[in-house]
Amino acid sequence: MATVLALFRRELAGYFATPVAYVFIVIFLFLNGIFTFYLGDFYERGQADLQPFFVWHPWLYLFLVPALGMRLWAEERRTGTLELLMTLPVSVTQAVLGKFLAAWAFTAIALALTFPIWITVNFLGSPDNGVIIAGYFASLLLSAGYLAISACISALTKNQVIAFVVAVVVCFLFTLSGLPLVINFFSGWAPQVLIETIASFSFLANFTDMTRGVIDVRHIVYFVSLTAVWLFANVIAVDQTKGT
């Protein structure tokens, strides 16, 4: 645990040692503002809630999280520091956790900095703050899913651009799998069970339910297990590819 903490601190400090962190946060807040107020009809809806804010998060994360995750392992492999890290008395699992938790904490910081929107909505009306907290919680879980995918893919290449592109594609598939586009393609010929399974794999479906304040154990289990599976794959990927 102390080891994971040491890795976590180094990684998190690493974000703020370069302009990357500030650029990322500014872009995240800027896009959130644009999406919420212009595309989301925040004012025009005349409703005091944060639906128009959260609804964009899967699409924001789709690009921003792979951008954050692409360097996690690819950079270490490119610069050779992976050899340094993997010859410290640190297990691959500890290293994977330290890196993941730091990147996740970083997205949590970026998310926390959207608090003015929360203040605004409370200023304009009287929203159900329970639902809003559920929304933030859901957004955090969602980012963990995207991040675990991006981290795992980053471990498979030295090239950050490749890591980014592949991660966006995989994240996109997970996001999309619940959309009518996909479901319609299957409905009519595929068994209902299969359709439901595919739909239940969707980030969107699980996420949207939660932002409406419906926090079901199923949704939490979905995100937690998805993240765990991808992190496990990340451990295997690092272990198998570290010397090549």
Binding site: A17, T79, G80, T81, E83, L84, L88, V90
Partner: peptide, 17 residues
């Protein structure tokens, strides 16, 4: 690994620290 001190070839280091 705990018993070893290792200087890898080219001395890779975390440049941002």
């Amino acid at each position: 690994k705990a018993a070893i001190g290792y200087l890898p070839e080219g001395a890779p280091l975390y440049g941002d620290m």
